[in-house]
Structures are given as C-alpha cells and as structure tokens.
Amino acid sequence: MGILDFLKRKPEPTATVAKERLRIIVAQERSTRGAPDYLPLMRNELLEVIKKYVNVDLDAININVERDSGHEVLELSVALPDGKAASTP
C-alpha cells in the first residue's frame, strides 16, 4: 500500500460487499431449491391466518422443507413480536 493510499481512508471495498450479499442470497436460494412450488403461496396464506390473531410480518415466518433419508419434514417457525399478545382486530 502506498503513502497516498494510507492518507485516503477508504470505505469498505465493493468486492467485500458483493461477496457478503452473494453469500446470503445464494444460501437462501439453495435452501429453497427443489422445494415444492406451493411453498411461497402457502406461506402467504398462513401469514393471513396468523395475522388475524398476531401482528407479524412476512419476514417473521420461516418455512423449510428438510429431507432426511426417505422422509421430508416441513418446518414452520413464526417469530412473535415481544411483549404484546394478540391484537385481535
């Protein structure tokens, strides 16, 4: 690194940003690869039902299909907002 480089303080290199973004999106896409096509729709419908009782948004719902030897497990997790219980409309 030259003296001029040292004097100019640089922001985070864009390649580092790119790598981090790719790492996350690729991992996410791999986890849903080969999963049934109905999954996104089911996720939205489940969200509608849950929303009737609890105020959550789409990001709070996580659906995974995991394959073990011979059988599949559908895993659904919902992160509820802290404190407040149901806010029934």
């Binding site: 640089k10 390649a15 580092t16 690729v26």
Partner: peptide, 17 residues
C-alpha cells in the same frame, strides 16, 4: 481491480459457489 477490492477474487467466487 481485484487487488484494489473492486472485483470479486477467484477465491471469493470459489467460496460462494
């Protein structure tokens, strides 16, 4: 460009994929 952090390196691409 890789050397100055403007482009993903060989190692970066290998790690991601």
């Amino acid at each position: 460009r890789v050397a100055i952090g403007e482009m993903l390196s060989v190692k970066d691409v290998e790690e991601i994929l």
